[in-house]
Amino acid sequence: MLNIVLFGPPGAGKGTQSEKIIEKYNLTHISTGDLFRKHLSEGTELGRLAQKYMDEGNLVPDDVVIGMVDEKIKENNTSTGFIFDGFPRTVAQAEALDRLLEEKKTPILGMIALDVPEDELKTRLLERGKTSGRVDDQDIQKIENRVKVYLDETLPVANYYNGQEKFTKINGVGQISEIFDNICEVINTY
């Protein structure tokens, strides 16, 4: 199975590139944001549990998130592989994901990180905010906070996969097709 983590800060182009990767390699997309929305809207047991934590202003615990990921993998057990988008966000989540995939004998083959300078991220997010309607893309202070959270909390995940020799950084600035070609070069080595 082709299991990859697509990684990068908000505005790096993960959504754009993951669509292209999914189409070319016939992968199943796993986005924890999508999983949360699905479970919350369907009122599943995991959704109700997640809602309880969110209502209290707390982060949803890793075991609940991993439970949602596990369920998605089980629903797509004939998939040729998975692309993890926006997950894992912490080293603890990366370790939990590794354990889950180890049980299924289908490890993460690599993490591909889109590298984009902070000024470019801000420009992209503000531009996206004009058309997306996303409030968090329209306020420079919220954008700066999201980038800071990424650098402080999420970036260590890159070091985790780098320690396993599964980390590749791709320049996320340029033509979409050129960036995609560079990503495919990496995927084709797995």
Rank of each mutant, 00 (worst) to 15 (best):
E56K: 15
N77G: 09
E75I: 08
I140F: 04
G133M: 08
L125T: 01
K104V: 02
G81E: 00
E103T: 13
D115W: 01
L109M: 13
G81D: 04
D34F: 01
E118K: 14
H29Q: 11
H39A: 00
L35K: 00
D34L: 05
D85T: 04
G86A: 10
D85W: 01
T28N: 11
L27Y: 10
T90G: 03
G43H: 03
F82S: 02
E120K: 12
T106W: 11
L109W: 05
E75T: 07
Q138R: 13
G86H: 01
L126F: 05
D139P: 02
E103Y: 03
M54G: 12
M68I: 09
P117N: 06
E102H: 05
M111T: 15
D139G: 08
G33C: 09
F87I: 06
Q93N: 08
K38V: 13
E56F: 06
K122E: 14
E45D: 14
E75Q: 15
R124C: 10
I30C: 06
D136W: 00
L49W: 07
E56L: 14
G133Q: 04
V60A: 01
D136H: 07
L49I: 12
Y53G: 11
L101T: 07
L59N: 11
G57T: 10
R48W: 00
R128W: 01
N58Q: 15
L35N: 03
D63E: 14
P61K: 03
F82L: 02
T131W: 07
